[in-house]
Every structure is written in C-alpha cells, then in structure tokens.
Nucleic acid binder design. Structure first.
Length: 485
RNA sequence: GCCGCGGUAGUAUAGCCCGGUCAAGUAUGCGGGCCUUUCGAGCCCGUGACCCGGGUUCAAAUCCCGGCCGCGGCACCA
C-alpha cells in the first residue's frame, strides 16, 4: 500500500486538507505501507506557488503528526513529464493542437475531432519538440490527450495535458524561466501516481471527474489506475476554510487580517495558533472518516475534545473579568501567604504562593461583579482555596464581608459557592481576545500575579472562565487568546 | 442547463455491501442527579434520528423504482 498527499504550495493547508492528508497517512500506516508527500506546483501563472508555502505545509503536516517516506516537487520533474509525453504521442494517445481555444470548443461541444487530432505521429513529435524549445507563444499550442469524444461530460473530451506558460512574465519560484511547457494537474498527477506506485488515492470528491480523465491517460500507456476513494468536503462551523475567501479578506482588509494563520480562519496554522491541539484535529478527522458525504464539524465538538486533552495537563489559575473590590474584615495575619496547587490532581504541576496584604485584619480582594451578586444573594461564599466569607453590607459602592474560617468543610456546611478571586494589589492585567466569527471580542480583566511567569504559547485554564493561550507576556499586560470554555 | 455523487437525532458518526440480533449504538449538545475547593472534568439518568412516497419480502435504515433536498464537477486551476 502506498498513499500520497499532493497539495498545491500556493497557500496554507486548512482543516479540509487535513482530511485527505491524515487519512492517507493513517491508511498507509495501518497497512505498513508508505506515505508520499508531493507538491503540485505546475501552474506558475494562475496559481503561482508561494516559496514559503512548501515549508509551511511541511510544518503543518509534521505538527499534525504526519511523517512521510518520500517527498517530491513536481516542478523538479519536468523532464520526466516531457519524456512520457513523447511516449504518449508515440502510442497516438495525444496530439499537439494548434486550434484557437474558442475554435476547439466548437469541435468539443459538437463531439467532432479537431483538424489536428489525426496529425501523423512524426509531425506531432516535431511540433511537440517545437513547443518545448520555446517556438510557440503562450496560447498557441497545447498537447491534448485523446479521449472519447462522445463522452456525455464535455469536459472529458480531449483534455489538455500541457500548455505553454510564458515564464519570463510569470517565473516559477523554484525553476524560474527554465520551462515554458507545463503539465496540467491531470497529466502530472496521473503520471506521478503511476510512477510513484501509488496504490490508493484518497482525495476530495471535487476530483471525481479527474479520475475519469486520468484513466484515459492510463489506458493509452497501458497502466493500471490506483484505487480511488473520494472524500466529502469539510466545513468548520463559524470558520472560513476556503483559500479564495481567505485571500479575498486579506486583500480587502489587510489591516484586519494580516496573515493566513489568523485565529479567525480555518487553516491548520490558525487552529494551532488558536490553541487547538493536533491530537484534537486528528481525532475529529478520524471520527469523520472515509466518506463521500460532506460534514460540518461543530466547534462544540472540537472544544469538547480539546478540553478533555487540556484539562489534565494545564495549570489552573484565577482570573476576574469585571472586578469589584470587596473588603473582608477580621482576617488573621497568618493568611498573608497561601500556597495553592496549580492543578487539583496533576501534582507534577506543583503549586504557587499567593501573597495578600492584610492590614489590621482588613483584606481587599477583587471578585467578579456577577459573583458579588451571588455573594449578596447567598450570604456566604468561599474564596477558592482560601477562606470562607460572610456578607455584611454594601455602602458607598463598597462591599463588606467578614472572615469566617478557612475550613473547606465549613463552606460545604454553608453551601457556599466557591468563587475565584484576585488579591487587591497582587494582580496583573490580562487582555483576552475572543474570536467570534470574524470579530474579535476583547475582554480586559485581572489575573493573579503568578500569571506574570507564564510563557508565550502556554495554555492555562482560568477557573470558571475558560482555557486561554498566552500570546504576550513579560510586560505590564498579559495578552491571551480565548480558546474555549 | 448538462454530467456525477450523497441524504441516520442540533452536530458528527456506527449499522447499509452480506435484509431479521436495530422498538437503531457512540460522541458532542441539551435537561436532571451524584461527586468535586470551577458554572470544568468524572459518574449516572433522561432527551433526540433512519428525507418522502411506492415496490420486493414473512421481515427493509439495509434491496429496487420515483420524487424532494443537498453537494461536487462542467478551465490551456489544482
């Protein structure tokens, strides 16, 4: 078993591409076969390859846990395509067509052969050599593969295998202006799948006609076509996956959407930046499986999988989004420092010391305005991992509470809600960016001082708030991306 | 318009090839409970689906036909 993933390096890959790539890789692995990565960069004109995309795609694949046994770049295989083209002409499977494009269309829809279809082989070879040696202009000549002219689908009839692209005008990022005759997707992919002994092709169902086209090529050459498995399209609820739509947004709003890995998009890099684990993506793709029908992946589902993976591994910290000062009276001085574990069960994560300032038994903490409301409603709350507090009064905009005890069992006795808190004076400002569709909602709040030690890229759980990924730290304000709740 | 392919709960998926064990399984969501120093996780209970209509058959989610809906393709793109 040999499978392959064959992206066009003209852009980043997205969640939709994760389906064929992960599934092809897993298939090969399952049957102890080989998996091949092949860059299909044979159109320097309408889909010019992006030099940085080759490595970016490889990085994304590696991140997804995909390892490949062989790697090819089609633009480096031009001589191979050329030599097979001569072979194809030799068996009268292809001919050089000098017709004008519109003129050919008439023959095509009329199911009639164009005048060049029966050109003698020697002349065809001569014409082909002229093509390759830059004799013709762009648009003057193509090499067509002979198919069934009466096929009900007109697009199949004598499709183009090679066309001329003026690479002085549109140089290729890898081979520059070295070649002017370029193979089309169907030719290059078809030839390579055979030459690379691909046994199973897993690709999007948009390629289903291409399979039919390529089979003509295989028939002419006496090759056997691999097994094909068509995969349905994937959507990600609330995200844009489409290459063209992302490009359009970036062109139209260059200041809003600076790069294709923006957390609002559905590229693999975007999801990685967003804080989604590669394991989550793999699970989702494997769950969707090999089916032709389309699937809309819900964000809830992604979040559920991701949350479970993150839950055990990530530190839990306190954060208050809409702070209200609460003064607690009669707090014992010995409580000016408490050590709180960073995770209730994962002891490897250790703990952190939280210092508070107790002045004459008075302690000021910040609570979320919603929690202050519960405080007033319920009468007793527990400041998580710290102490139980009784509500006293509210006046002049100040909320007053009274220390009861530190025992957790008391909190249970009082059925006190457990609330996260941040010490007044011992906090750090946190700015959280929450993507919602194409908008970014910004939430500013206060995190406990320990958050200053977080590194960029680190993911933590803010208790009762959600999982975040730190994108900027070190300064006065910590910036983070909201992953999910 | 013309070719081709699909349609199981809100979402995703299992079962369909080889009809009965499917009064349809699983995950997530939603409702409730237990547990828990989170409104998180875990555990338990509940909720909710075979697109419609015919046919074949003792028996159809599964096979056949028609309809409806959805998707893909119709490039000198990949």
């Amino acid at each position: 078993m040999r499978t392959r993933f064959a992206p066009n390096p003209d852009f980043l890959i997205h969640l939709g591409n994760a389906r064929p790539s992960i599934l092809s890789y897993e298939y090969a692995k399952m049957y102890k076969g080989k998996f091949i990565l092949r860059f299909e960069d044979t159109d320097p004109k309408t889909k010019p390859p992006l030099p940085e995309a080759y490595s970016a795609i490889k990085e994304d694949l590696r991140w997804l846990g995909i390892r490949w046994d062989e790697e090819y770049i089609q633009s480096l295989r031009m001589e191979i395509y050329y030599s097979i083209a001569r072979e194809l002409i030799g068996v009268r499977g292809a001919y050089v067509d000098l017709c004008d494009k519109k003129e050919f269309l008439k023959y095509k829809i009329g199911m009639k052969p164009c005048p060049h279809r029966n050109t003698a082989t020697e002349i065809n070879l001569e014409l082909w050599d002229k093509m390759v040696s830059n004799y013709f202009e762009e648009g003057d000549a193509v090499l067509r593969v002979k198919t069934d002219l009466s096929h009900p689908d007109p697009s199949l009839r004598d499709w183009v295998a090679f066309r001329i692209i003026n690479t002085e005008v549109n140089p290729h990022p890898i081979v520059g202006s070295k070649y002017v005759v370029w193979p089309t997707y169907n030719y290059a992919a078809g030839v390579d799948d055979h030459l690379m002994s691909i046994t199973h092709i897993l690709r999007g169902k948009e390629h289903s006609v291409n399979t039919l086209k390529q089979k003509y090529l295989y028939d002419h050459l006496g090759w056997e076509y691999p097994e094909v498995i068509n995969l349905g399209r994937l959507k990600l609820e609330g995200f844009i996956l489409s290459k063209s739509k992302i490009k359009e947004l970036m062109v139209r709003h260059p200041k809003v959407f600076k790069s294709a890995d923006d957390i609002r998009f559905g590229t693999i890099a975007s999801l990685r930046n967003r804080g989604i684990l590669s394991e989550t993506i793999r699970k989702v793709i494997l769950e969707v499986g090999v089916k032709v029908s389309d699937a809309t992946i819900s964000w809830d589902n992604i979040a559920a999988i991701n949350r479970k993976l993150l839950d055990l591994e990530v530190k839990r910290l306190m954060f208050v989004a809409h702070p209200v000062e609460v003064l607690v009276r009669h707090v014992p001085e010995r409580l000016s420092s408490v050590t709180i574990p960073l995770h209730p069960t994962n002891k490897r994560l250790g703990g952190r010391e939280v210092r508070v300032n107790i002045d004459n038994g008075n302690l000021t903490v910040l609570l979320d305005s919603r929690d202050v409301q519960t405080f007033k409603d319920v009468g007793v709350i527990r400041l998580m991992e710290f102490m139980n507090v009784k509500y006293v009064s509210e006046g002049d905009g100040k909320v007053l509470g009274e220390f009861i005890s530190t025992d957790l069992s008391d909190a249970k006795k009082f059925r006190a809600p457990i609330i996260q808190w941040v010490p007044y004076g011992g906090y750090v400002k946190v700015l959280i960016v929450k993507p919602e569709g194409l908008k970014l909602i910004k939430v500013a709040g206060y995190g406990e001082a320990y958050m200053k030690t977080l590194m960029v890229g680190e993911v933590v759980q803010l208790v009762r708030y959600g999982f975040i990924k730190v994108v900027k730290s070190g300064g006065k304000i910590i910036k983070a991306i909201y992953i999910h709740d």
